[in-house]
Simulated scan of single mutants.
Amino acid sequence: MLLPSVFLETKSLPPERRLSLTLFGSSRKVIYMKRFLVSVLMLCAAGLASAQANFPQQPLKIIVPFGQGATDTVGRFLAERLQEQLGQPVYVVNQPGGIGTIGTRYVADSPPDGYTMTVSNTGTHAAAPSLFTNLGYDPLNSFTHIGTFGRVFWVLQVRSDLPVKSVEEFVAYAKANPGKVNMPYYSASSRLSNYMLSKAAQIDVYEVPYKDSGQVITGLRQGDLDAAFFLFDLAAQNEQLGFIKSLAVSSPQRATIKPDLPTIAETFKGFDMSSWLGLAAAAGTPEPAAKRLRESLALALKDPRSKEWFAAHAIDVYTLSPSETQELIKRDMKVWAEFVKDANIPPVQ
């Protein structure tokens, strides 16, 4: 029987020497194995770090949690600008449903690598928690918030023959006619606008449900309605009709695209009813990827073409850092929770 050379060499040695050599050999094998594993881990870490540092290395996609409309339009424009900054294709995918919660939940459940983002907004991240009992995501903790990029405002408009020219005069008219000033709501945000104004001014208006903004315009023309809130871009178009006039905008500061229009906050301090738009990826997105996205978003918004496009679509460039975005969401969630409670709106199961 042939024996290993090490065994032959150590067989004649005293037992304690053979044990020492055996242990030494085993220890050396362990050391070699440890060194090998450390090398493998270092290579993996280096590869991961390199991939993160060179982000992105493949196409990205932005999930718009709605169908065609304002959010989709701005999402596609933003994708074009980000594509220029990132050097990779940025695709837009519409995934509507559940007032935006289905597409938003999809992004929350996506791999946290920065390649899948969503257009976060007031509805999906502030209103939804109060409107759904089983939302499926946490607006704060399920996302890596890249930041906000735009804000759309609501304009209080009245029919032209209503004898008021300012917010103060409108409030006085409403107090003189309690429960007789007809105001419509045709979306969650338009209803919240009515609620916030009524609460701030302590007036009692009669709310009428309408299907869409087109029907509201008809109601104002026919005299069935007295006042209504419209998104800024539509309000600008309404002014050209000849039978609707603007009183004030719901933003905390005057809009840069129409600085001559007063704010409701000038009459009621702290009034702020604006719908914001942002960009968010799944929670746990590596910081190098998140940083690259933040920097690219900032550069895209500084592009003169972006400023021109946003102005043409009545969207105010509105930039907040990730931490500021978190605070915005917290504040708006409280506003919506109070509104849903006071309005006795039952949440969707």
Rank of each mutant, 00 (worst) to 15 (best):
G278S: 03
S275P: 02
A176H: 00
S39K: 03
K11I: 15
F66Q: 09
T325N: 05
A188G: 10
N194Y: 03
V249R: 02
Y210Q: 10
L3C: 02
V6I: 14
S187P: 07
G136S: 07
P112I: 01
E295G: 02
S27F: 10
A227H: 02
P4V: 05
D260K: 07
K180R: 15
S166R: 01
A51I: 14
G278Y: 03
S275L: 14
E169P: 09
E327I: 03
N141I: 00
K334S: 09
C44F: 09
A281E: 06
T256S: 13
F149Q: 05
R159D: 11
R221F: 06
A108N: 02
P4E: 13
T256Q: 08
L297D: 07
P288S: 12
T101W: 05
G114Q: 04
P129R: 01
T133C: 02
P178M: 08
N344R: 13
E207R: 11
F55N: 04
G47L: 13
E287S: 09
A53V: 12
R191A: 12
L220V: 09
K199A: 11
P259V: 10
W336M: 11
C44S: 00
N177F: 04
S166E: 10
S321R: 02
R17D: 12
P259T: 13
F149R: 04
Y115M: 04
G214V: 01
P288N: 11
T122M: 10
R305W: 13
Q57T: 15
L220F: 07
F7P: 00
P347Q: 04
V152W: 04
P259S: 14
A343E: 15
M42C: 11
L43N: 09
F24G: 13
N121I: 04
T263I: 08
Q95L: 14
G219T: 03
F24A: 14
R81K: 15
